[in-house]
Amino acid sequence: MIFPETWWGFLLSYLMAFIGGGILCAGAQLLIVKTKLTPARILVIFLIFGIFLQTVGAYEPLNNVFGAGISVPIVGFGASLAKGSISYAAEYGIPGAFAGGLIQTAFGIGAAVVASYIVTLLFNAKAK
């Protein structure tokens, strides 16, 4: 967090989160409207963009400014994966590169799998 811990500092961090997330999502929407790319392809593009940012070391400074505005979109997921791989590789050598990404993102993926499973037990898909 680069913003001071005052009320306007917090407010500024929310504003930056809104702007960061907004710009990324509007960019993806532009790809949807202007090209025939499917959502799956766009997700992969943004994911690899996040991995790239993390690899060249540009993600942390951006995250400090935009906060959740860059970590919540899939870019942040990619960056987390890369961060895990890089740090585990530094610690355990090459094998760490294979495990690190999953370990770093396991909180989110685990929650998604378990929550999806439980929801499946409770609900049914509806035709609108």
Binding site: L47, L81, S85, A97, G100, G101, V113
Partner: peptide
């Protein structure tokens, strides 16, 4: 449910793991 859960998100998870591993190896 169990087989199809990754039907839509599969590309994200697979590409994420592959390219993150590549990133980790490069940085190493």
């Amino acid at each position: 449910t169990s087989v199809k859960m990754f039907n839509v998100v599969g590309p994200v998870v697979v590409n994420g793991i592959v390219w993150a591993t590549v990133a980790g190896i490069i940085r190493y």
